[in-house]
Amino acid sequence: MEMIQTKDLIFEYAKHDEEGNIIGKNRAIDKANIDVEPGSFIAILGHNGSGKSTLAKHMNAILVPSEGTMWVNGKDTKDPDELWNVRQSAGMVFQNPDNQIIGTVVEEDVGFGPENLGVPTDDIWKRVEDSLKAVGMIEYRSHSPNKLSGGQKQRVAIAGVIAMHPKCIVLDEPTAMLDPNGRKEVLRTVEELRKKEKVTVLLITHYMEEVIDADKVYVMDSGQVVMEGTPREIFSDVETLKKYRLDVPQVTMLADELRRRGLPIAKGILRTEELVEALCQLN
């Protein structure tokens, strides 16, 4: 069974004029088909307004499809009886680190999710401890979130999600508001979680560097899934990516330029070491 699956998902919202009358419909997502296998690391790429965040909100049933269907852990997100199951199985981490922390103390915030699920008190403490350890924030457990850095706040938010024992974590541009250090911190945390806890990770981003480890990448543009494949496949096609206003990682860019100037370098180079290797092979 797929962890997350969509079939011809369409999401439309009404456009209003200044008096509040409906003057038309905007299609934010247009027939998106996505399959996420359990345990995999999936990335969704797209520039601003491509519909990737709207799609993310569907995975948590914050939004429900206008047409088509989305299944999370085999449950239809349109079914109101399954709402809380869906939300528990797919945890969300949002962009703004300040606006998703509810507690005034780190550990209380992590406990918020389990409290809502009705987990017994002793179990909450255990879950809070485990998840704070998993993101490496255990020594900050009694701190106020206001005093943490952006990256630390996002790690607390991730801990808050994993304390609910989800099967899948959806990260909606978790690094967009962070500095380079914070970004690395958050990505490393996600990476570790993926390896240790074997959760499915769905990363939504517009930073290319973040997706090179993904098992599969979807590229979205104006509501449609326009490309899908492994990072290597996606980044081989620099021209198409540029058409969708996406930048490829610097290394890939350099390799591409070199190849165009006539050097025999393979397509889809993702890491610096690979390029070094490829260049050393030349003679």
């Binding site: 914050i62 606006n99 509810i102 918020f112 389990p114 809502n116 009705g118």
Partner: peptide, 24 residues
């Protein structure tokens, strides 16, 4: 911010005080 926070709370299964347990 309020809008974002409401969304974050809902996505963490917040549904009012009924059936909620306490950490402390």
């Amino acid at each position: 911010r309020a809008n974002d926070l409401a969304m974050a709370m809902e996505s963490r299964c917040y549904r009012g005080g009924d059936g909620r347990t306490k950490m402390k």
